[in-house]
Design a protein around this nucleic acid. Structure first.
Lengths: 344, 344
DNA sequence: CGATTAAGGTTTACCGGTATACTCGGGCAC
DNA sequence: GTGCCCGAGTATACCGGTAAACCTTAATCG
C-alpha cells in the first residue's frame, strides 16, 4: 500500500504538500502542483489511511448508529423493519457526506461510551434509547448526538421524532367518527415517557373530546410482536362489554390482532375495527389492509443525519435541535362502522 | 481523556508495561505490577484508543458488513427483513468477539475496496454481491472475506449459504405430491448464477423427476417486492392452461401473489396453491399462512462470523471455507390439492 | 528603496499506541 | 568464580498522517 510519503517522493514534493492537496487546501498549493500530485495519486492508487488521519487530526469521520442490543430489549436487535429501514437510510446519507458508519448495539451505557471514545467517533445517532440512558449517554461522551423518538428528555439534547401524540389523537378520532363508542387500546407498557405513552395520551384525549372514556379493562398490554398480538386479541374479545374497535400502537400488533380476531370468528372490519401505527409494509400485506398512521421513516433518517451534520459543523458549540415530523392517517380497510347489534 | 502515558506515569512504570498489561502479555509483567496498573486504569477510566492501536499494530479490530447500496439494487438498502436480521445477528457476534462493525453499502467495487483499505479493515462479510463483483472485491483488498449466498464462485473464496437447490426441489416435490400437474414458477431473473437460479434448478428438477415439465409460459418474472408480486398474480392467472400451484422464490413474493390471487377471485389454497421460500415473518402474517422453506438466518450469520474469525486467526494463510446450511419445509396453509375441476 | 506581505512550500513535532531490541540484577550449573 | 540464562522492565523507533511554525522568493507599498 502506498503511503503519503510514497506519493510525495514520486511527485517530488513534501508530505505536507500532498496532504494539503488531498485535503483541498488549494490556496496553499499551486495548480500545477495539484495536478502533478493528483496524477501520482491516481497512478499509484493511493488511498488515505483513515486511522492515521483520525489519530492525527482528532477527527475520525466516523459516525455511530446505536440500537438496542440483546441484553436490553430481549428481541433480536434490528429485527424490526423500522430500525433496519432507518439504518439503511442513515448509512446512505452518512456515506454521501463522506463519513463512515459504525453499527453498534447498546447493551450498557458504559460499554457504548467506551466504544465511542475508543474510536473517537465524531457523532452518534441513537435508536430506541430508554429515557434514563439518554442522559447518561449524553453525559458519558462529548460529541454531537441525536436521539430518535425520545420524549420528555432535556431540550439540550437533540432529538428527531414524530407527532406521536397527534397520531394517537387522529386514530382515536377516526374510530369515534366511524361511530364506535367502545374503543380499546393495545400496546406495550407506557409507564415511562416514550412514543407509546404519547400515542396513548393522544388517543385517550380524542376519546375524551368525544365524551367517551377509555376503560381500564379495554386497555390490553402487548409487546410489539405478532404472536403476542395474536394472543392479545383473545383478551380484547374477553373483556366485559368488549370494544368494537381497537387502536394498536404498532402495525405489527395490529396485524397480529387482525389474525387473532379473525381466528376467533370476529371478522374485521365487520365486527371489529382496527387502526395501526407506523405504516410498515405489514399493514398492506394482510387482508383487509390496515388503516394506520403513516410516519416517514426515511425522512426521519434524513433529518437525523442533517441535525447531526449541523452539530458536527458547529462543534463544540452545542446548539441542540429538536425536529418533529408529521404523521398522516392512511385509510385502508380495517376500519368500519360498529356492528349493528353489539356483541356481549 | 487519559492516555497510556498518563496511566504509566501514575503507576510509576513505562508505557510499554501498561501496554503489555492491557494486551494480556502477562508473562512479561509481574503480578504485583499488573494489579497496580489495573487499579490506575480503573481509577482514571482509561480507554484504549482504537485508532492509535490500529495504526500501530496493523490490526484494526474492524469488520465490515457490506450490503447492496442504492445504486446497485434500486430498492432501499437493508429494507428487506433478511438482510436486516442478518446484520443484527452479525453485529452481536462480532461484538462478542471484541471486534467492531462497520456497516457499508456497496455502490461500486472501487469505492468499497477503498473504504476497506482506508480503515485497514481486518475482514469483511458481503451480502447480496453479484457474481462478477465477488471476484473483483476479493482481488481488490487482501483480507479475509466471507460472501453470503453466492453460488458458482471460486472455491478459494469463502462462502456461507444454504441448500437453495434442495429447497427448490423440496418445494417442487411438495406441490407434485399434493397432486398438482400444472405448476408455475414466480421469481426474479436467473440468467446469472445465484440463489434464484439454484432454487429454480431444483424446482425444475423436481418436476422433471415427476415427469412434468415446467412450461415457459408458467414462469413469471417478478422482483422480490410485494407490489410486483400482486401484479405478477394476474400474469399467472392469465397464462394458457394456467397453473394450479406456484412456487415463489421468496416469501414476500408468495405473500403478494396470495393477495393478487384472492383479489382476482382465486382463493388459496382452494383454487391455487402457493409455496414460498425463506420463512420470513410475512409468511405467518397473511391468511392462509404460507407453506415455505425455512432457512436459518441467525445460523447463517453465526456461521459467517465463525468462518471470518477462523480466517482472521489463520491470516495470511488463506484457507477458504464453504458452509452450506440446511433448509426445511414448513407446512402451513397455502398448499392444498388441485381444484377438482381445473379452471381454463 | 527598504520593509512588508503573499504565495507556495518545507520542517518539525506530535497524535497514542505497539514491536523489537536492549538493560539489569539475581540464580544456577560447572 | 564466572559465564549464562531468565524474569521484569525500559528505550527507541516507528505506524501514516496533520497542525503549526518556519522559510524562500517575488511582488507590493509607503
Amino acid at each position: 500500500m502506498p503511503t503519503l510519503q510514497d506519493v510525495a517522493r514520486e511527485a517530488g514534493v513534501s508530505k505536507m504538500t500532498v496532504s494539503n492537496v488531498l485535503n483541498g487546501h488549494r490556496d496553499r498549493v499551486s495548480p500545477a502542483t495539484i495536478a502533478r500530485v493528483m496524477e501520482v495519486v491516481g497512478r499509484l492508487g493511493y488511498v488515505r489511511n483513515a486511522t492515521a488521519r483520525s489519530l492525527s487530526a482528532r477527527r475520525s469521520n466516523l459516525v455511530a448508529l446505536a440500537f438496542p442490543g440483546r441484553d436490553t430489549g430481549g428481541i433480536e436487535p434490528l429485527m424490526n423493519p423500522h430500525d433496519s429501514l432507518f439504518l439503511g437510510e442513515v448509512e446512505a446519507h452518512v456515506t454521501e457526506a463522506g463519513l463512515y458508519l459504525m453499527a453498534h448495539s447498546v447493551n450498557s451505557v458504559e460499554s457504548t461510551a467506551n466504544s465511542l471514545r475508543s474510536w473517537n467517533v465524531d457523532g452518534a445517532i441513537f435508536l430506541g434509547t430508554r429515557a434514563d440512558e439518554v442522559a447518561a449517554l449524553h453525559r458519558a461522551y462529548e460529541a454531537p448526538m441525536v436521539f430518535i423518538d425520545n420524549h420528555g428528555t432535556s431540550p439540550q439534547i437533540s432529538n428527531v421524532g414524530i407527532e406521536d401524540r397527534l397520531g394517537g389523537r387522529l386514530a382515536g378520532r377516526r374510530l369515534v367518527e366511524a361511530g364506535h363508542r367502545r374503543i380499546g387500546f393495545v400496546g406495550p407498557a407506557f409507564d415511562e415517557p416514550g412514543v407509546v405513552r404519547e400515542r396513548h395520551a393522544g388517543f385517550a384525549q380524542a376519546l375524551a373530546e368525544a365524551g367517551l372514556e377509555l376503560r381500564p379493562e379495554h386497555v390490553v398490554r402487548c409487546n410489539a410482536s405478532f404472536d403476542a398480538a395474536v394472543d392479545a386479541a383473545r383478551q380484547v374479545l374477553a373483556a366485559p362489554q368488549r370494544p368494537t374497535a381497537v387502536f394498536a400502537t404498532a402495525d405489527i400488533i395490529a396485524a397480529g390482532l387482525l389474525k387473532g380476531f379473525v381466528r376467533a370468528g370476529c371478522p374485521v372490519p365487520d365486527q371489529m375495527s382496527i387502526i395501526g401505527f407506523d405504516d410498515l409494509e405489514v399493514a398492506r400485506h394482510v387482508t383487509p389492509e390496515i388503516t394506520t398512521l403513516h410516519q416517514d421513516i426515511p425522512g426521519k433518517a434524513r433529518a437525523a443525519v442533517e441535525v447531526l451534520l449541523a452539530q458536527l459543523a458547529q462543534w463544540p458549540t452545542v446548539r441542540s435541535e429538536r425536529r418533529v415530523l408529521g404523521v398522516t392517517l392512511i385509510e385502508r380497510g380495517s376500519v368500519g362502522p360498529p356492528p349493528a347489534i353489539p356483541i356481549n
